[in-house]
Design a protein around this nucleic acid. Structure first.
Lengths: 219, 219
DNA sequence: TAATTTTTTTAGATTTGTCTAAAAATAATT
DNA sequence: AATTATTTTTAGACAAATCTAAAAAAATTA
């Protein structure tokens, strides 16, 4: 069976919104897809008849095993293409998302497998996100240097690059520790400082040296 | 301005049907696009308002300068992707067309230029068709060895690989000469012989040796 | 040239994915 | 628990691209 670009985008959005096996609301989906809740309801009914998800009215939606498989296939293509764009075609890692949004809907299975082989079966895309293999399996998210964390991606501090007392003193002063959740808001080319935002706090900047000493896991 | 996949496919089909500045009929377009003449009429009206072509009812259609530019852009993408699939991803040259039909509609201009550079600015695709450059210019069709001519592609014999009397004797016997129009119908792996068809004649096979001695230009 | 055939267009309907406005169900608040 | 607010669904409409059936124009044939 084959699906329209629109249908695939719905499945992908549900996959990203649904943490593990949680349920996704109509409103959240509408926001993610830049459409209206009424349109979402219509599409959910359609995707239900195609057995890609389970859906009871007013109860939210959850992908079926088949829906999850489709979603993983799309995510696999998206991330492989991102890897290709950055690694092979020398795109900047911050300019590949929109292009990959289009490329992920190219249907040829053979193309995906050949591309994967050409790239050397990469396990992570340029943003540090894991690439599902052809069976839909993917490795756990690795640590990423905070300096490489994309904008507006919620992440959790998972490690530090040194144990020096000076570093720990600074971290204590900034109120950052293992498990702190943050996201990157801006990057300043002049001194490579970055502005970060921690929940319930105003954004503040940290130096390049500090950012490089912090490792995070995206959530 | 941006166009739907359907609109692009109409423009591309008109481009291929319209030799130089000839006019294309509704029926021919419908046949090429596997659709109905009535649908073609509707679309032509729409594309006319978008200034991609000139069209008077019952008088056929012809691309405008703008339409031609768009068509060349699509052809450029199609052929660059075909080159990529064969050259980089090791596809067989006979299995790339359908995939390229999808890839040609990816819109990113930057992607096309980066791909072109990565491939080394190729002038001809794996089928021997010229690839338009970023300004829409393309080189004249080169000669292709008959052994490499794709199925069902009308071509004209334009040269021979040797001047030996034995070759010319054989060509005379088979009634093949410079300017003879033919197309390849089958290829036999066992002895690499190929079956060719000349207008108003029954198809017949020629040996690998003979095919390799013949050069053709596609029409 | 008149009659016939072919090509092309019009008119009206269908499907997909979307919308707005209003109703119904659920959740939150007093 | 009753009221209010939010979320979600239904009902009906719309645009894009298509279709069928019938009408109109052009081309062909007699």
């Amino acid at each position: 069976m084959s699906f329209s670009v629109t249908e695939e985008n719905y499945i992908k959005a549900i996959f990203h919104l649904q943490e593990d096996d949680g349920t996704v609301s109509t409103n959240d989906l509408a926001a993610a897809l830049q459409t209206r809740p009424a349109s979402v309801t219509d599409m959910l009914k359609k995707l239900k008849t195609k057995k890609l998800l389970s859906y009871e009215r007013y109860k939210g939606v959850r992908l079926s095993a088949e829906g999850k498989k489709l979603a993983l296939g799309i995510v696999r293509k998206h991330r492989l293409w991102e890897y290709f764009l950055v690694d092979t075609l020398q795109f900047g890692w911050d300019e590949v998302h929109e292009v990959a949004e289009e490329l992920e809907h190219i249907s040829s299975k053979k193309l995906v497998e050949k591309l994967d082989a050409f790239l050397g079966h990469p396990r992570f895309d340029p943003h540090g996100d894991p690439i599902p293999d052809s069976h839909g399996k993917m490795l756990a998210q690795p640590q990423v240097n905070l300096i490489d964390l994309p904008f507006n991606k919620m992440a959790e501090v998972s490690g530090v690059g040194s144990q020096s007392t000076e570093l720990l003193e600074l971290l204590k002063h900034k109120n950052i520790g293992i498990g702190t959740r943050l996201e990157v808001k801006r990057k300043f080319g002049f001194d490579h400082s970055i502005e970060i935002k921690i929940r319930n706090q105003n954004p503040f900047t940290i130096s390049q040296q500090l950012a490089q000493a912090l490792f995070v896991k995206t959530l």
